[in-house]
Design a binder for these strands. Structure first.
Length: 560
RNA sequence: GUGCCUGUAGCUCAGUUGGAUAGAGCAACAGCCUUCUAAGCUGUGGGUCACUGGUUCGACUCCAGUCAGGCACGCCA
């Protein structure tokens, strides 16, 4: 619908000889008396045309040639708003259209034929997922769903590192706990992993091996055992939330030599060197980010800074594999590359972007969604979380307490840039009275109506001829249909901005209008035309809600 | 100290490239179930959109500064 309005505005502008310099915006008016859609084109053009915006608006309206089946009338109001009023037949046909489209309603083809990769979670296997991690996980998953709805072929990827110091510390933490089980007294360092899950893993080893590994000093077994256990747990937790990755990308593969005899990491350095952005000093290999505008401020003076890619120990710093990893995303042919990560990685991606830019990649394909941290409040006290200290609330505990639907919903109902405070006590209390239920209840209610229609009126909802939509007439009916019509725009809007919560805001509006409709308009037991037309509207609402829930990853219960 | 994010109703938050009288849920108060699920609906109260300036026909929205909170500023990942 939006498209029809925009193209007609364009046509009318051309007719009066005006070339629009800005995008034409159609929005939903703040008050229903201003129509069903409005545009401020006339106002935005007023300055450059040096004409009264109301005059421009009137000139345009005079040129409009809308199908009266779609647009009933067009008004000029306020300082020059053009307000469109939809005709009843358009709304009726929308209901039919939704039912015919079914699961496809809301999908678009803007991403058709394009490949997208969404990288999210990407937690290293050093411990169970925390409440903080859950946010990025759910956000990433919803973004992937949104892109899929836009027609993209989406790959969901998990990038991880199972090497390096952190894993050695993890392995040794497990080993020490194991030795305790063997009856030895050990000093457990403060900077080792303190969480109870370490003991659980040690117990598992002890149960399998007894004290046979008591004198084992090589950490390989402990590392591999711990990693396997932890990864299994992470995947289980994610599965509870309906999150499944298509691809697990091991950072280690970037160190492995390819047929050329070089690793991806080597290649990055070589290519950056060819471009003149590599310097070797102090035994390390530096990326000359100073030439690309990177700087820090000290004592009021700006100092250009370079970035270490290979440490003097010969080990790459994590930035090098990060860059190399992204070159693989381009090599794999992705048109859209979305990275979802927490605010603590905010300083990392500019270096990656700089490097990729220098190497000639089209960095405009990369979109970064940074979510702010989640803090937890336990008994009214905010807790700072750390996997190392083991005091982080696990995502599993949260799911146990509030359920998968509420967990997903809570994470994603707020804009990613807000500092989300998860009060566990409150989350538990709210579970009975949760915002997600408002949406789900609308769905369950519709299912209830359809059941009753079948039982009491022997009416098979699916068999009702779609022509009955022409009897939709009441205000509540038309208001609801009008809102349903906006669903594809809402999906598009949420997908473009990578902000799933915008879809929630929309769906809330649908649920609200449905509940109002329900209150005013009975279905079962009404005259045939009324009953059937309303049943069609209810089914179209159910379809829209389902399609939205699918993107959000929450269930659509038939009874509550 | 520097960079990024945040500050909107008692609480948690929406607010579509600047637009019409700033919204929702929860909490409070008052109503609505012999009829398709009251996890719902209707109504009332509740606001210096952190503060101060600026930009213009118009600012919660853009710019500058101030205040408050979060995160990051390593040859850690």
């Amino acid at each position: 619908m939006k498209d029809i309005l925009i193209s007609e505005i364009r046509r009318a502008l051309a007719e009066i000889g005006v070339e629009p310099t800005r995008e034409i915006v159609i929005e939903k008016p703040s008050d229903e008396k201003f129509g069903d859609a409005s545009s401020n084109v006339a106002m935005t053009l007023a300055r450059e045309l040096k004409k009264n915006p109301r005059q421009i608006a009137q000139d345009l309206v005079a040129k409009f040639k809308f199908n009266p089946e779609h647009i009933e009338r067009v008004d000029v109001a306020g300082g020059g708003f053009i307000n469109f009023y939809f005709s009843k037949t358009l709304l009726q046909q929308t209901v039919r259209h939704i039912l015919e489209q079914g699961e496809l309603f809301g999908r678009s083809s803007v991403g058709a034929g394009k490949k997208a990769i969404v990288e999210y979670v990407s937690a290293n296997p050093t411990g169970p997922l925390t409440v903080g991690r859950g946010r990025g996980g759910v956000l990433g998953d919803c973004i992937a769903n949104l892109l899929e709805a836009q027609g993209y072929a989406v790959t969901r990827e998990y990038y991880f590192n199972n090497a390096g110091r952190q894993m050695r510390v993890l392995a040794d933490s497990v080993r020490l706990r194991y030795l305790e089980l063997c009856g030895e007294t050990v000093a457990f360092p403060d900077d080792y992993y303190q969480g109870g899950y370490i003991k659980d893993i040690a117990e598992k080893i002890f149960a399998e091996k007894g004290d046979a590994l008591k004198n084992e000093t090589d950490l390989t077994f402990f590392k591999e055992f711990a990693e396997a256990e932890i990864f299994k747990g992470i995947k289980q937790t994610l599965a509870r939330l309906g999150i499944h990755h298509d691809s697990f990308f091991n950072e280690n593969s970037l160190y492995e030599r390819m047929d050329s005899g070089k690793s991806r990491n080597d290649q990055v350095i070589e290519l950056l060197d060819q471009k003149g952005y590599i310097e070797r000093k102090d035994g390390a290999v530096w990326f000359k980010t100073s030439l690309l505008g990177k700087k820090k401020v000290e004592d009021g003076k700006e100092i250009p800074v370079d970035t270490v890619l290979v440490k003097s120990t010969g080990e790459p710093s994590y930035r090098l594999p990060d860059i190399a990893y992204h070159t693989t995303k381009f090599a794999r042919g992705y048109d859209l590359i979305v990275n979802v990560f927490g605010a603590d990685h905010i300083d990392e991606y500019p270096d990656v972007i700089r490097a990729l830019d220098v190497l000639g990649y089209d960095v405009s394909r990369i979109k970064v969604a940074i979510n702010q941290f989640v803090t937890t409040t336990v008994n009214g006290v905010q807790v700072k979380m750390s996997t190392r200290k083991g005091n982080a609330d696990t995502l599993d505990q949260l799911i146990d307490e509030v359920g998968p639907d509420a967990t997903r919903f809570f994470y994603v109902m707020r804009a990613k840039e807000t500092h989300l405070n998860f009060d566990l006590e409150l989350a538990k209390k709210q579970s009975n009275d949760n915002p997600v239920f408002y949406l789900q209840y609308a769905h369950a209610r519709i299912c209830g109506i359809i059941r009753v229609a079948e039982e009491k009126a022997s009416l098979n909802a699916d068999a009702v001829p779609k022509d009955f939509v022409k009897f939709l007439n009441a205000k509540e009916e038309l208001d609801l249909a009008k809102e349903l019509m906006r669903f594809p725009d809402a999906v598009n809007y949420a997908a473009n901005s990578l902000e799933p919560q915008k879809l929630i805001t929309y769906l809330n509006g649908v649920a609200e209008l449905f509940h109002k409709f329900y209150q005013e308009c009975r279905i079962v037991g009404e005259a045939e035309e009324t009953m059937k037309s309303r049943l069609l509207l209810a089914m179209a609402t159910r379809q829209t809600l389902r399609n939205g829930f699918k993107i959000l990853g929450i269930s659509a219960p038939e009874r509550m």
